[in-house]
């Protein structure tokens, strides 16, 4: 870990100002990703701005909108009664991630900005376009069992590692961002950028912007939601494939459905075509399988991750069946 300047911010505005004073600043919220990657010499901030004690931790319901402060801890959000009831997929996703200890430190805002677990990104010895633009990608022809099959490019196949953002994508969450021009709110999916030719650009945040909250709408669709994670170990591991889904049933038909995938894509992956395929369909395995096929139709596999296509499809079917209450 290189030397850096440490400064505590006493307001979000102060935090942003402090961050903009130097070329390479990083906000310290929970520290779980930042400290890890600073030890790996992947993150080399000149200045660390400690925002961990800013009062952005509330979970508040205003009308049909639940606003979760960016500094709320993962564990507090997971066990929040409103969240667990109105957004089961969010609670399940949080509890499937990391460990109890890490969930106590990690924050919601930080979780949105979690960096990939790609081995070739996490050690400076390897070629990585994300870490060192233009250097090449050692994952393409390397050990890529864990790598993405959706949203990839010839420059990067690094998997987005998070669970929560996948659930948030399925539940059409919004992200509240504070910048010099005030506050703006964007759809969660608009936070993330596909790697394309410039995988070093991961989000649409401008320099000095700070995520202050996420917002979720309370509605029947979101209450019937579920997060399913498939991994090698039974716990404390990143996903090989994961699915967040939400379904609203109308009589014997699916009125509307939401599906997002994790562990298989470079960003939290909303499967919009699969959602459309489910609209109006009966909640049965045949419809679920069709949706799964649609969701993975654009998959591009490498040497070791071909299995993820089948695994993700099965996970989609299982998650939909579960959320439909075994209606199939």
């Amino acid at each position: 870990m290189r030397a850096f300047e440490y400064v505590v911010a006493d307001s979000s505005a102060a935090a942003r100002a402090l961050a903009r004073e130097v070329g390479a600043a990083r906000f310290y919220a929970g520290g779980t990703t930042l400290v890890d990657l600073m030890k790996a010499d992947v993150e080399r901030p000149q200045r660390v701005v400690d925002i961990s004690r800013l009062p952005l931790t509330a979970i508040e319901r205003r009308g049909d909108v639940v606003r979760i402060g960016a500094l709320a801890r993962n564990s507090d959000v997971a066990y929040d009664a409103t969240v667990a009831q109105a957004f089961p997929a969010v609670s399940e996703a949080l509890l499937s991630g990391a460990s109890g200890q890490i969930r106590n430190s990690a924050t919601i805002g930080g979780n949105l900005l979690q960096r990939t677990r790609c081995t070739y990104f996490r050690e400076t010895r390897w070629r990585c376009n994300k870490r060192e633009p233009g250097s090449g990608c050692d994952a393409l022809d390397g050990f890529n069992r864990g790598h993405a099959i959706l949203g990839t490019s010839d420059a990067c196949i690094a998997t987005f590692p998070g669970d929560l953002p996948v659930a948030l994508a399925a539940l059409s969450a919004h992200v509240v961002i504070e910048g010099d021009a005030g506050e703006r709110t964007i759809a969660l999916e608009d936070l993330y950028l596909l790697p394309g030719d410039e995988p070093q650009h991961e989000t649409s945040l401008a320099p000095g912007e700070l995520i202050t909250a996420i917002e979720l709408r309370v509605e029947p669709l979101h209450a019937r939601s579920h997060y399913l994670k498939v991994r090698d170990r039974a716990s404390y591991e990143f996903a090989l494939a994961s699915v967040a889904c939400a379904v609203e049933l109308d009589g014997g038909r699916i009125a509307q459905a939401r599906i997002a995938l994790g562990g298989v894509a470079t960003v939290p992956w909303r499967a919009v075509d699969a959602e459309a395929a489910l609209a109006g369909a009966p909640p049965d395995d045949s419809a679920f399988r069709h949706a799964a096929d649609v969701a993975l139709s654009g998959a591009r596999t490498r040497a070791h991750n071909g299995y993820k296509v089948e695994l993700a499809k099965r996970a989609i079917v299982r998650a939909l069946r579960t959320v439909c209450g075994g209606a199939a």
Binding site: G31, T32, G100, Q101, I102, N104, S105
Partner: peptide, 9 residues
């Protein structure tokens, strides 16, 4: 609260 001290400054 249980916390990992290795990931904390």
């Amino acid at each position: 609260r249980r916390t990992l001290s290795c990931l904390a400054l």
